[in-house]
């Protein structure tokens, strides 16, 4: 317990969850076969909108974060209507360019405080601790201080959001819209001729990705207290892409696994921190060469499913071993 209450680990968990949410954002767009490299840009829009709304307009946090997502969505509409007409490479470059334009604008605006970025953004943890204190638990509970309670509450809220998004993505993939997405990803032309309004669904997927990225940005802003334009540059876009490439983008678990691995890796391996970008680069190249579908693909899941259902004995053992591993 002591170990888990360590602020360092709590922070790590929040970062893992935020990255997992970003993983879902790129997954949603990719599920129609569109590679958007603009999610770092959408994230920054969400982060700045939410931060500025709380800082300058006094909007409460719980309203500011969704508004950040909405702002990202609005921008996605402007950028998406011409770009979702584009296929593959053009879309990737156009969205990358969009992220760059957003970054330069943020760098130059007064309200965003330019290169210095925004600091002392209202913190979610502090807000929640105050709430808990007002609830009569100012002294903490069971040896856990009110600050720690705040941090736990932050993690719970983030986990709830992530949980909902996973639920959303899973339900989506087995619904009429999800099938349309999958059909577009498999063969856009055949999908169109099968009666699917491909343009509409591609735009919808683009919006959903932007909204989720915007939310992740807003959450990140209120957890790190500071945001600057550098946080959302090319490297951020590549990092989000990496979640999907490493984990896989067939099923929602892929990018989540990618996000978890890539967030934990630099913390666990010292040399991984030092050579982080090089390792990232190598992962991208190696995955494309040897396992372009990512670590988890549809067939990996199918394999596990058959293992768990068709061979009860082995499946039982499997479950046991899987439970005991953390």
């Amino acid at each position: 317990m002591e170990f888990l209450l360590n602020p360092y680990y709590m922070q790590l968990i929040t970062f893992i969850i935020i990255n997992a949410i970003l993983g879902i954002s790129i997954y949603l767009t990719l599920s129609t076969g569109q590679l958007s490299l603009g999610n770092a840009g959408f994230m920054s829009v969400g982060a700045y909108t939410s931060a500025l709304l709380t800082l300058k307009a006094g909007v409460p946090l719980y309203a500011a974060v969704p508004l950040g997502g909405a702002a990202a969505c609005l921008l996605a509409a402007i950028i998406g209507i011409p770009t979702t007409r584009l296929r593959g490479i053009y879309l990737a470059i156009a969205t990358l360019g969009f992220g760059e334009v957003v970054r330069v604008i943020i760098l130059n605006l007064k309200i965003t405080n330019g290169a210095l970025g925004l600091s002392s953004i209202p913190s979610m943890g502090v807000m929640l601790s105050k709430g808990i204190a007002a609830f009569g638990l100012a002294g903490g509970i069971g040896g856990i201080s009110v600050r720690q309670l705040g941090s736990i509450a932050v993690i719970l809220i983030l986990a709830l959001i992530l949980g909902f998004l996973i639920f959303f993505a899973l339900r989506l993939s087995s619904s009429r819209l999800g099938r349309a997405f999958a059909a577009i990803k498999a063969d856009e032309h055949a999908a169109e001729v099968s009666g699917i309004d491909t343009r509409y669904y591609k735009l919808l997927a683009f919006f959903m990705g932007a909204f989720v990225a915007g939310i992740a940005g807003g959450l990140a802003a209120h957890i790190t207290f500071y945001i600057g334009p550098k946080d959302f540059a090319y490297h951020r876009a590549v990092e989000i892409l990496l979640f999907a490439v490493l984990g896989g983008s067939d099923v929602v678990w892929g990018p989540i696994l990618g996000a978890v691995l890539l967030t934990v890796l630099p913390e666990v391996l010292r040399f991984a921190t030092e050579y982080r970008e090089m390792i990232y680069g190598a992962i991208l190249v190696l995955m494309m060469a040897f396992r372009p579908q990512g670590l988890i693909s549809e067939s990996t899941l199918a394999l596990w499913r058959t293992k768990l259902t068709r061979q009860p004995k082995i499946a039982g053992q499997d479950k046991v071993t899987r439970r005991t591993t953390p």
């Binding site: 339900r171 619904s175 819209l177 349309a180 099968s194």
Partner: peptide
């Protein structure tokens, strides 16, 4: 697809 009606949220819930 075009003969079905369920929208996004109907599919989610």
């Amino acid at each position: 697809h075009c003969r079905m009606k369920a929208g996004l949220w109907q599919g989610i819930w």
